[in-house]
Design a protein around this nucleic acid. Structure first.
Length: 270
DNA sequence: CACCAGGTATACG
DNA sequence: CGTATACATGGT
């Protein structure tokens, strides 16, 4: 059992479009798969959560995954206090965490994501895991997202046969660059934001939006605020055509996520 | 059955 | 430089 006192909603986080390998199992229980880790977590009471993993595994992996060393409440309350659509979105999205996921998994997942709706992305990622991923020990039927090695030698034709469409050559290029070291995902942990984004965009199929998603969800760069169709719509409708997120520095990615969630889920006129 | 989906590469001007 | 268009496949 762990206590989580900060803003923390499993429901909203799972439904916030940043991770595609997490699932609501029942009213209070959720399952997350990330790299070679599986977690089931159940809300037993407000702030009280039961875990399927050891305390060590929680501390060494999942606490960082849920970004629990950062306080979201002050960020969210400050946004609410400023009002406007950003404030409403922050109130509505309270509890969303920015998940710190595996960089390689984010690279391929967000290459796959382009021009797909979220259910289709989930399906594509599951297919990748089902065909090329290792089975998760103790979790019948579940497979981890494939490693670079597991995808070595997979051809464009094979990706197309999996339903990956025109993204197939992008996947081949991404895997190839990671395997031969042209793209060193670990080393980029230490890079500044601009260097990271530029390095990621060398991969075919990785443009500015996907690069920002990888930076935010794979590297925990809260300065990154990916602009997709939903965020662009918010900018057009509520922010006078200006990208307001960039000015928020270390809170930009979090506020972006509130707005993304609000655009998709918050009842509003127009 | 149209239309769109957490975009990007490429070809233009 | 900025803008238009094709792109594979599945959801709504």
């Amino acid at each position: 059992m762990v206590t989580i006192a900060d803003d923390f909603s499993l429901e909203k986080t799972v439904d916030s479009g940043q991770a595609f390998r997490c699932e609501k199992l029942d009213d209070k229980t959720y399952r997350f798969i990330s790299a070679a880790h599986v977690l089931e977590i159940e809300e037993r009471a407000p702030t009280q959560y039961a875990l399927s993993v050891t305390s060590d595994e929680w501390v060494s992996y999942w606490a960082d995954y849920f970004d629990l060393n950062r306080q979201y409440r002050p960020i969210r309350e400050k946004a609410q206090a400023e009002g406007g659509f950003l404030g409403e979105a922050a109130r509505f999205g309270a509890g969303i965490r920015i998940l710190r996921q595996d960089p390689f998994e984010m690279l391929l997942t967000f290459i796959l994501s382009q021009r797909k709706n979220i259910p289709a992305i989930i399906q594509s990622v599951r297919r990748m895991a089902d065909v090329y991923g290792e089975p998760a020990p103790g979790a019948p039927g579940l497979r981890f997202f494939p490693t670079p090695k597991a995808l070595a030698g997979v051809t464009e034709a094979e990706y197309r046969a999996l339903g990956m469409g025109y993204r197939a050559p992008y996947l081949v290029d991404a895997v190839s660059r990671v395997l031969d070291g042209r793209l060193n995902l670990s080393k980029l942990q230490d890079a500044d934001d601009a260097t990271l984004i530029t390095a990621l965009m060398q991969v075919k199929g990785v443009g500015i939006k996907v690069a920002n998603c990888i930076a935010l969800y794979g590297y925990g760069r809260m300065t990154a605020a990916p602009v997709d169709v939903w965020i662009q719509r918010a900018i057009d409708q509520y922010f006078d055509g200006k990208n307001v997120f960039l000015q928020f520095g270390e809170s930009a990615g979090i506020l972006q996520q509130y707005v993304f969630y609000a655009m998709r889920r918050m009842p509003r006129e127009e």
